[in-house]
Design a protein around this nucleic acid. Structure first.
Lengths: 164, 164
DNA sequence: CGTATAATGAAAATGAATTTCATTTTCATT
DNA sequence: AATGAAAATGAAATTCATTTTCATTATACG
């Protein structure tokens, strides 16, 4: 099942889509790989979501468009997308590998409800500043970070209160 | 293999050890479980490390003390430790479930080198403050968080520079 | 002590991630 | 457009961490 998602998101514009495809196909060329319809479909499907997708979840979405595309291809394409920076793996506590897209996104963070798995994105420039400061302090060349807050969302809190 | 770890850590004092055991055995009693030698050994072994241990890594350490203890017991005990708050799962990007101990520890965060997997702990009261603020803003009952910065450590940076 | 209940650990089961391999497709070169 | 080398595809098999099962052993309460 797809994660519930709380945010205000418009689907990517045609230009952004094109730009992302450009990045992807430049990467393929660079490492000597080929342009295929499957890869195209998978990239587009991926960009159209804003969820944190497991490979299997993306596979199901891709299937709706092109019933012939196999799980393995989705799996491999997702790795390629991660390689060229369009996707990145988000370690979630459920243990399954999940990816989110990274293209033209503000650096963002997640709040995860431990009751219903809803995840809310939030943006915090302070966190970005911290990344930089900490990196300097420890002589790390910091490239990205991962910030998740766990807790119970308002809805679940109400439900729990009612259940008592 | 154990993760390389960079920090300044003294082994837990006898009193802290005792206090942790107390918490553990109170928890066992509460849920109607029994006190066993194996659980004792596993708890002690766990507390003596500061690494982010996978189940298998802890199992290997436990084995050195008591060769008869099985993997399954370590696996189950780790879950019990997580239940009573002495351990907590840390989602790392390698996909394996890792635990760290949580007893009497300042709230801390990690820097992970993407080249050598070394992890450095750091402490940042600002991050704790942010957790609180964000929780308030989004009406989340925030209980904990997870903050990791990825980058390249000084050593690896030197190695890379030499290789070019 | 005796007995009910839980713990243990070896082995089997599960399930996600990854690899294999026969077949098909792409694409640079005729 | 045809060719052929190299890569892609996808079904199936494999790997490997995690979890469950089950027969045996240990704990603890009366």
């Amino acid at each position: 099942m797809l994660q519930r998602r709380i945010d205000d998101h418009a689907p990517p514009s045609r230009e952004l889509m094109r730009e992302a495809q450009d990045i992807f196909y430049k990467h393929l060329k660079r490492v000597g790989l080929k342009h295929t319809d499957q890869r195209d479909t998978i990239l587009r499907t991926f960009l159209e979501t804003r969820d944190h997708l497991s490979t299997d979840e993306l596979f199901r979405l891709v299937r709706k468009k092109e019933a012939k595309i196999g799980f393995t291809t989705v799996y491999r394409t997702l790795k390629l997308l991660a390689e060229c920076g369009l996707a990145s793996a988000v370690p979630f506590p459920d243990g399954m590998a999940r990816y989110e897209h990274q293209f033209n996104r503000r650096n963002h963070h997640h709040m995860v409800c431990t009751e219903c798995d809803a995840s809310v994105e939030f943006f915090s420039p302070e966190v970005n500043k911290l990344e930089e400061e900490i990196g300097r302090k420890y002589h790390f060349d910091a490239t990205r970070h991962n910030f998740q807050i766990y807790g119970v969302c308002e809805d679940c809190r109400k439900k729990i209160r009612r259940a008592i």
